[in-house]
Amino acid sequence: MAASTRAGARRPAGIVPTGVLVLGAVYTLFPVSWVVVAATKSKAELFSTPTFAPGTGLLSNLADLFAYRDGVFWLWLLNTALYAGGGAVLATVVATVSGYALATYAFPGRGLIFNLLVGGILVPPVVLAIPQYLLFSEAGLAGTYWSVLLPQVLSPYSVYLARIYARAAVPASLLEAGRLDGAGEWRLFHRVALPMLTPAMVTIFLFQFVAIWNNFLLPFIMLGDDHRFPLTVGLYTLLAAGANQPSLYNLIITGTLLSLVPLVALFLTMQRHWRADLSGGAVKS
């Protein structure tokens, strides 16, 4: 009800922000629409028909992609799902626990730890890839699944986000009341705080999932065995096929399109969660 009255009273000035958003949407969706159209083109059509004229080769592209090296595409997709899913879940757990601790407990060195984390946000992960590779090599872990999973488990930005959100959404008085009622710290976190932190967790999960899904340099350096490659690195081997081999553009474009599908699906399902809980959190204080 409240929503409908607000919508009815929309001022004409709302046109400007809407226009800007529409422009932004066009700007970001334009390349995606190219991928969609280009994936339908056969080899012969790709570079000869007008850019946005749909082609006739989608099915044969799909068949070629799935047949390529006995369906290695599916393996790459599974790997990516493992890296992104596993990495995002672990990162969310780590970030939520540490963010909650940083927000609710006063302990010596809290400021220092937090400042170090904020500093960590400023270091682009790309810069860390090679040092991480050398470290993992020392530990004998380079080339394993862990070498791609572990570096993504701690995300300073996610911890920062969790801490900010926990401070705003979990009132100290509520925890105090729980303590008076005799709840232990674990129970407080688990039963009282966690439900309030869900929107932050969804956000962190999505952020990390997308970041790992798109990550290129870390797996590119870490992994030698192409059966452990994620999609980004796998598709890249089709593109950079060597100077004397043609790039397999059709397969790359079709593969790119398919690799978008899980991301879009994830956003569409998680988004609902996200909105409901954000408004739920807003009522609290």
Binding site: R69, A142, G242
Partner: peptide, 25 residues
């Protein structure tokens, strides 16, 4: 065991890095 890599300059850089780190193919 074959491991199919991306070709070109990147492949060379990757091999050099792996050789330095002590675990080249």
């Amino acid at each position: 065991t074959v491991s199919k890599q991306a070709g070109g300059d990147d492949a060379a850089a990757k091999f050099l890095t792996a050789a330095r780190a002590g675990n080249p193919p």
